[in-house]
Nucleic acid binder design. Structure first.
Length: 564
RNA sequence: GGGCGUGUGGCCUAGUCUGGAUAUGGCGACAGCCUCCUAAGCUGUAGAACGGGGGUUCGAAUCCCCCUACGCCCGCCA
């Protein structure tokens, strides 16, 4: 038996088809109406033509004849509203929560492996807030796919070669540390980025360096082991810093693949000759390009050395051999490149082709963030400031906590605020980063949701009764605030499935706010521990709520503080 | 010039894919609520006909066309 709302929806669709005698393949446009009307609704307009009756008539007929076990149908003009039976809702939902605990919402394993590529930022310096959107979206999707039963590989494609990294390498070989400013913090990526930034400014002043940079690019592309070693070592150092920062946000990559591998092992060259044989490739002055719909993408230079599109393509061919499906999280500047990938993989008859989630950039006070130019707010600064703010807020309202407790809670709350603030916006919308918003802990924020978790724990910790399902009568839970809360809890599995199908992680945030808000209203209107006749039932409800919320926060990668 | 995306109350935002019944929530403003499980909470008031214009439809924030503003892209960079 699955989740109750899934079951009810399936029953409705099945019975509508039976009652109206429709083809089983036909799509029934069930929608979710305002909650006062019901849980599902069917507008009957579209059946009008086919059945040659008025929508009202069809609705009436449907309501009179449909047989539902899990709920009821009611006509409202041309609509039929379906309402799940409250007793079923309460019983099934709470039982499921107690059964699944913090993994509530999990669907059975699918035996399907997906490789989800995210972050993949050039490893030349610390992550700034603009880039941080990528791992936060990526990691949230990782968690969603896992809950939906996929096996997920979380992969970082390390662009350890290419022009920017060549400049970085040149800097690390030619610049003496004595001439560099103090790093902004004592962290390896901050030490390293100074070489990159200094190299860029030297390059601007002195164009002769360009030849040396080209020399490095060339040597690397020829597979020069010594140069590659330096490239990789630099990349590794920066990555150590970057993954350290991500860890603080509960983001853990479990797989890294170096771009240079595809050059060294010859797979790029192999791929290029395969591409050359397709009808889409031609040469111009010896340089090979792929052309589709009038757009050219060069795969090699005229001297035969390969270019990024070819290397990324080789990477995707490699990935396709190792997973059932692929998903990439990329900045909007990669849209055209994404088109190319799709077309080229099609031309090679490669499957699977990646789905791509594109996100718009984060600007800061109207400016684009840039590692090269040093215009940015680093993720580390944001995280530190968020934690400090959280600590201040705790000190304002608590005097009963140890230093260590304050430290732990402020970390959870600060990081929750950061992740939530980024994930709550639809990826394709641009974000203009504002400290004031990122550090807001009231209203539509992560801490708002975490707070209700702490509240639910507060109640449960004061109760030492051992309560089990057998000892209670769940049918006592029938007041409006109770039902509304349980109904919102019941929606979580279906929501997860929708988020996965549409790759729309921001909807988890929206749902979390709705869920927490329902709890706050329940909390306001109904006492739990002082309830005369349904204390046990309400304790069980709060326990179930706590599990749902924990599962939701886990999916968002946000820690759940027991107290705050 | 072309392609893609975005434009919803003063500010931020959901809904747009799959058209439907009074457009979601927050911030800010104003007015209230802690002798009662944490007020990072709750309640109420004011505030948007969904960038503009056409069209399709019984019905459009949602679909189509035109225009407009902003972002990204159109490199033998990545």
């Amino acid at each position: 038996m699955g989740y109750i709302l899934d079951e009810f929806e399936n029953e409705i669709i099945r019975e509508i088809k039976n009652t109206l005698d429709l083809d089983t393949k036909i799509d029934i446009p069930l929608e979710i109406p305002d909650e006062e009307r019901g849980d599902f609704a069917l507008p009957c307009f579209i059946f009008s033509k086919h059945l040659k009756k008025s929508p009202d008539h069809i609705a009436k007929n449907l309501v009179e004849n449909i047989k539902l076990e899990l709920g009821t149908a009611e006509q409202a003009g041309p609509y039929v509203n379906f309402k799940l039976d409250n007793r079923r809702l309460v019983k099934e939902t709470i039982e499921k929560c107690l059964e699944y605990k913090e993994s509530y919402g999990k669907y059975p394993n699918k035996d399907e492996k997906i490789t989800l590529e995210h972050t993949s930022a050039n490893p030349n310096g610390p992550l700034h807030v603009g880039r941080a959107r990528n791992p936060i979206i990526g990691d949230t999707l990782v968690r969603v796919y896992e809950k939906m039963g996929f096996e997920v590989e979380r992969q970082y494609f390390v662009n350890d070669i290419g022009r920017q990294m060549a400049i970085f390498t040149w800097g690390s070989l030619n610049i003496d540390e004595d001439g560099l400013p103090e790093p902004e913090r004592d962290k390896i990526d901050y030490h390293m980025v100074r070489y990159y930034q200094k190299a860029n400014s030297l390059l601007e002043e002195n164009p002769d360096i360009e030849d040396e940079v080209r020399g490095i690019i060339h040597a690397m592309e020829q597979g020069d082991e010594d140069i590659l070693k330096v490239f990789r070592r630099n990349a590794e150092k920066v990555l150590e810093g970057v993954t350290g920062s991500l860890k603080r946000l509960n983001i853990h990559l479990n797989s890294f693949k170096n771009e240079s591998d595809f050059v060294v092992d010859g797979s790029v060259d192999e791929l290029i000759s395969k591409m050359d044989k397709t009808e889409y490739c031609e040469r111009e002055d010896g340089a090979l390009f792929f052309e589709k719909e009038g757009r050219r993408t060069f795969l090699t230079r005229d001297d035969g050395t390969n270019l990024y599109p070819a290397r990324d393509l080789a990477y995707h061919v490699w990935k396709a051999e190792r997973a059932d499906s692929l998903l990439n999280v990329l900045g909007e500047d990669h849209k055209l490149h994404g088109e190319f990938l799709r077309n080229a993989l099609n031309a090679l008859d490669i499957d699977p082709i990646p789905e791509i989630v594109f996100y718009s950039f984060v600007s800061f006070e109207g400016q684009e963030m840039s590692t090269r130019k040093g215009i940015y707010v680093t993720l580390d600064d944001l995280m530190d400031t968020a934690q400090e703010k959280a600590r201040d807020e705790i000190l304002k309202r608590r005097d009963d906590l140890s230093d260590q407790e304050i430290e732990e809670i402020s970390e959870k709350v600060g990081m929750g605020a950061v992740r939530f603030n980024i994930i709550k916006v639809q990826p394709e919308k641009p974000i203009d980063f504002k400290w004031e918003e990122a550090l807001n802990f009231q209203g539509d924020t992560g801490p708002f949701i975490q707070y209700t978790y702490a509240r639910s724990c507060g109640i449960l910790n004061k109760s030492d009764e051992e309560i089990t399902l057998e000892k209670v009568d769940l049918s006592k839970l029938k007041e409006e605030g109770e039902i509304k809360l349980i109904k919102t809890m019941a929606k979580f599995p279906k929501l997860l499935s929708g988020v996965q199908k549409q790759n729309s992680p921001h909807r988890l945030a929206k749902y979390g706010l709705e869920l927490a808000s329902e709890f706050n209203q329940f909390y306001r209107d109904h006492h739990v521990l002082k309830s005369r006749n349904k204390k046990k039932e309400r304790i069980l409800l709060v326990t179930a709520y706590k599990y749902v919320l924990k599962s939701l926060l886990d999916t968002l990668g946000i820690d759940a503080p027991e107290s705050m």
